[in-house]
Write a protein that binds this DNA or RNA. Sequence first.
RNA 1: GGCGACAUAGCCAAGCGGUAAGGCAGAGGACUGCAAAUCCUCUAUUCCCCGGUUCGAUUCCGGGUGUCGCCUCCA
Length: 466
Amino acid sequence: MIKMFNDLTKKKDEFIPLESGKVGMYVCGPTVYDYFHIGNARAFTMFDLIRRYLEYRGYDVTYVQNFTDIDDKMINRANDLGITVRELAERYIKEYFDDADALGIHRADHHPKATEHIVEIIDIVDRLVKKGYAYEMDGDVYFDAHKFDEYGKLSHQNLEELESGARVDVDERKHNPIDFALWKKQKPGEPAWESPWGMGRPGWHIECSAMASKYLGDTIDIHAGGADLVFPHHENEIAQSEAANGKPFANYWLHNGYLNIDGEKMSKSLGNFFTVRDIRKKYDPEVVRFFLMSAHYRNPLNFSEEQLISAKNGLDRLYTTLNNLEFAKESAKEDHPVTEDRVMEKINEHENHFIESMDDDFNTADAVSALFMFARDMNIFVKEGMTVKAIDRAVGKLKAWGDLLGILQRSGEESGVNPDVEALIEKRNQARKERNWAEADRIRAELSGMGITIEDTPQGTRIVSR
RNA sequence: GGCGACAUAGCCAAGCGGUAAGGCAGAGGACUGCAAAUCCUCUAUUCCCCGGUUCGAUUCCGGGUGUCGCCUCCA
């Protein structure tokens, strides 16, 4: 049984999909006006992981993640760069996929763009106007928050509380400060579409309501995004969708915690952010992914180079086990003491731990500890001596868990064997046989200079890739 | 001001009523020509503080303190 913390109910709820065996999941994607930062990466990565886990548990998941390709930020950035909004969007959607693919984030089933759903957006705004939930003011259309009784049910605040803290709004034409734009009248030079209210463009929140319904239906199982979207974005989505459709919008609302820098939220507005693109120059994206899953997705997580190094070393440990196993295969014998059965015992033991952790609100930090414990067991087994079947089992399982989490897919022996290197190793082994340590160390240093690290094991000398 | 989250070793981080997982870093040991890797051992006696409930609390309740966040574009 999978339990997930639902912000709507403020507790861990058992997950029961609308339709047995199927899950509709919508995740708020990036505004494509720049490279995305590591904070964005946390949301995309962790919800990708949750999706993978749901699939692993047998659900048929339809996953939707949008691109916001029209809003103030898009327009401003396009102007700064002297290109069209459309060109800007195309550029950064491409860059998004470049980084997301590197992080092992699976492609969504649908990646809808706001600008390609203007018809659907106008339709829902129109229905809201006709139902009396929205009003037009000189080409702008606003949602009247006071008309939606349940406004505030996600952020658990009432209108009065929200409005008392609201900052001064320049737009005096709104009925109430909390009202938000569904449709914005065109300003000179801005991209615009025809609508019943004249030329204009969609407000920010409405696109998600329109696209979620289109691809997943009026009620979806899971809606997810960063904690900063709870209010106003998700609150507004609920208001719009439920007012328009008269049905619950989403049954489970999942929000990931912030990624912090020195204990402070990382955000573009604060300027204290690191893009994934920059981090990739120095660290393997797999390390970044591993780092992100080292904490529970709902908790705040501090980002630092030190943590990244720690994650890299931890991940290396897992890879070492994988390499140890594969290397041991070359000298494996049928009469070795560790048989497939003994490996299976360990797998069962740790798999239960793994599943229980993931079932409990996707506790990746705890699930990963199962991998480490399994790795230790396998390291011990390698020393004892394993059969080929036992090794295959162990490698298969470790890779299967890794595949689920999006790590450990790199193969142990990446590059083909270089004959020169082979010769040098042979030469060094000869020197070692003759106990000519000076020569052996010299050759090791020479190899090291070529970027090759070697290790002497009881089974022979081998190349370690990292 | 309103609402909320979090506080566990040098660092990161699980656990959330039964006496503190895991990782990183560090120390010692085994193995090794050396190194690396691996294995073993060690590293939290206020789990922020003070009360309360309980046979028993890191875990539940109340009150503090501290940090962060939302109420403004933001994952």
